[in-house]
Design a protein around this nucleic acid. Sequence first.
DNA 1: AGAACGCTTGGGAGCGCTTCCAGTTTCTCG
DNA 2: CGAGAAACTGGAAGCGCTCCCAAGCGTTCT
Lengths: 336, 336
Amino acid sequence: MTDVRKRQVTLDEVAERAGVSRSAASRVLNNAPHVSKAKREAVQRAVADLGYVPNASARALATQQVGAVVLAISSDNPEVFADPFFAEVVVGISSVLEETELELMLMMATSTRGQTRLERLLRTRQTDGVMLMSTHGDDPLARLAEQADVPVVFGGAPIAFEPQYYVDADNRGGARLATEHLIATGRRRIATITGRMDEGAGVARYKGYQEALAVAGLDASRVVHGDFSEDGGTRAMHELLAMHPDLDAVFVASDQMAIGALRVLTDAGRTVPGDVAIVGFNDVNAARHTTPPLTTISQPIRSLGRELARMLLATIAGESPTPLILPTRLVRRAST
Amino acid sequence: MTDVRKRQVTLDEVAERAGVSRSAASRVLNNAPHVSKAKREAVQRAVADLGYVPNASARALATQQVGAVVLAISSDNPEVFADPFFAEVVVGISSVLEETELELMLMMATSTRGQTRLERLLRTRQTDGVMLMSTHGDDPLARLAEQADVPVVFGGAPIAFEPQYYVDADNRGGARLATEHLIATGRRRIATITGRMDEGAGVARYKGYQEALAVAGLDASRVVHGDFSEDGGTRAMHELLAMHPDLDAVFVASDQMAIGALRVLTDAGRTVPGDVAIVGFNDVNAARHTTPPLTTISQPIRSLGRELARMLLATIAGESPTPLILPTRLVRRAST
DNA sequence: AGAACGCTTGGGAGCGCTTCCAGTTTCTCG
DNA sequence: CGAGAAACTGGAAGCGCTCCCAAGCGTTCT
């Protein structure tokens, strides 16, 4: 543990070199008022000469502000973050944070250990704010977060309650859009493969499906529950085919599942979109490359990240932004 | 700026409640020796009662250790992080960091502002270590990083020099594998679409291609340079077809490009793999869903993240780990 | 029984920065 | 030209924690 590294330059040294007091130097750095122009310049010169950079820890301790916010993903599945979805969210968040002096910390609470850490984070002010994306249904962490003494905004509304601050995609609207599209193109025996029913998105998309069919006076009983995964889609499609061989369309709550379903359909000798039309959800990259390319619902993931960050910034600033629901839209390809 | 929140519990309060000195309490928390069992327990009880959680900033200031490392992505392209590649890397990193008390910070130095921030980070000890993934060739930041007074490990070797600590995938070996596979399956007029030649991976993959052909005594002149993107692949394939209409195989340096190339080939009436075989690189998700599914080179991205984190941990601990090259392997599908 | 040793203990000095406050200087205006 | 206001200035008190050190004590050994 020999400390070879050169000691860091401190504010005192800057002050000394500039011939002012430490307080004055500090004021210059935070460009606070009450510093004469001459001194201000002297300090700036000293800063440049010495290559001074303030010590973040010291500042954090003194100001009681950490200078960092965290994006926390709470899930029971360690794989979630591998979903490109989050990569997009992060890009959106970063683009907003870049304008500020805040750093972004990532926290994946998938293990018990991670949970504990996140919990601790929420209970103490070790961060200036957190963006929480909780995937599984009645995450106790979500409730804890809602009453944490740190600003928290939710990405995607939790299923058990409606938090004060959140931004979400219009899952229900998107699902309705998809189903209406199926109806509009002449389908009548429309099935669905839902997502996990313990996730907000899963429930909302199922609701949208039901609504559209209800409005059209069609039967909404061809339902199998999936889990958002490709394998799940495969299983569900098999089941659907067995139970409702007459179906002529299926709204699948995620592209991953749709890809699995598509294969089952083709293998079973049903043509797509001839015999059965299929629409997915999310517009992942791979949706463009299936045969046929998948009609799907696209949600503005990057915007979601951006708005999430903006909302957090607002709450940190003491404002009370209203929840935000981002629009989804239909991307029509060849599977319908 | 009214501070509604309750003041945080401090070590002093814990000490007082436990009837010990602050130093003793501190020792217990860091489970250092020289504390009697009785006091240790008293402190632990007080901690539990009060719900005490140490203040990270204060600790950081006192120990001169931040308790966080950063993953920095330096690139001229703001989109890079959207690449699922990084999501995987992050998962790998997190899995290792989870075992420690370190937090992960994300820093995308795509704008000038971001660059400045990263630079500042490197010049001062505001983090305990950085993992730098630099995509563009002669990134000045890379050089700066190499002589920073903070431990730095590189993810993917920069092109301009070989850093002391890095972990990379065996891009050259993978490319050779791919090309040899093409040769082994009887192809003789093998072209390549390279990646960006100002990125290490681009260069290495091109080298691997050349080596394999050289060993086999085949012509390695059917070359067009791409940029890793799908559009780039499309463009490159057109060009290749125009210049070398006789080609019977092409090694494409990324799946994205391969997807574009595949379409061009099919549109041009060439069958795959009948007329021309094609192999990509990366094994992205979409590679499974093309028609035909893409033979490709798979690299252990998550391991890369994991090893990156491990190496950083080692250097932070004062060790001098040796660079690591992770193996790549051929995933054969129907395009060859 | 006394010396020597080793573990425990709490005091106190920082870590580098912000910010309050009182004192000083400089303006401004009657 | 003098008084009061306004702007500037630096001292000092923290922010909460770590860690060195000297002092205190109970043991063990001779």
